[in-house]
């Protein structure tokens, strides 16, 4: 079974996303229900029938009530495999977003070609750092 989630299922899933990854408004970090995450999930669930079935079963257990952290803990206990699949998928969807990466201190752009600036230690710095190691002398067994 695969296909798009129904409106009711989507609504339940959005609540779950907020609970799985709470945001941090003080740092401008969005919750798991950030823009783009649901689209990613919908697309994966359409592609992977087994995953869709697991998530649909999980959502059926949660829906239509208001989902709380206690509900989620119960779901994790009752359906550990399906819960783990959803958790993994949500982490992938959320952390593949460039804006989330940026809020965590990483570059939003692909890491190539730009990468990151890291200053090289000067020879003097390395000399100072390694002086104690060199002073202790040879550390290998000659043979």
């Amino acid at each position: 079974m695969s296909g798009r989630l129904s409106a009711e299922q989507s609504q339940t899933l959005e609540q779950i996303l907020d609970l799985l990854i709470p945001g941090n408004p003080a740092k401008g970090i969005p919750s798991g229900n950030a823009p783009g995450v649901m689209n990613f999930l919908q697309q994966r669930l359409q592609e992977e029938g087994q995953l869709h079935a697991q998530v649909a079963e999980l959502l059926a257990s949660a829906s239509p009530m208001v989902v709380t952290a206690d509900t989620l803990r119960q779901l994790q206990s009752d359906k550990p495999q399906a819960f783990a699949s959803l958790q993994r998928l949500v982490y992938m969807a959320y952390y593949s977003r460039a804006d989330v990466r940026q809020q965590l201190g990483l570059a939003p752009w692909p890491v190539h070609p730009q990468g990151y600036q890291v200053a090289s230690e000067t020879p003097e710095q390395l000399d100072a750092l390694t002086a104690a190691v060199k002073a202790r002398g040879r550390l290998y067994r000659p043979c």
Binding site: L19, L20, I21, P22, G23, N24, A69, L72, A84, Q87, R88, Y91, M92, Y95, S96, V100, R101, L104, L106
Partner: peptide
Amino acid sequence: TTPMTFALGGYGIDQPIPWGQEHR
């Protein structure tokens, strides 16, 4: 490593980090 890799199985853990407030 990078955030997704850490969240899915951080350094020496091989298991996703917890969800909820602990995740934050």
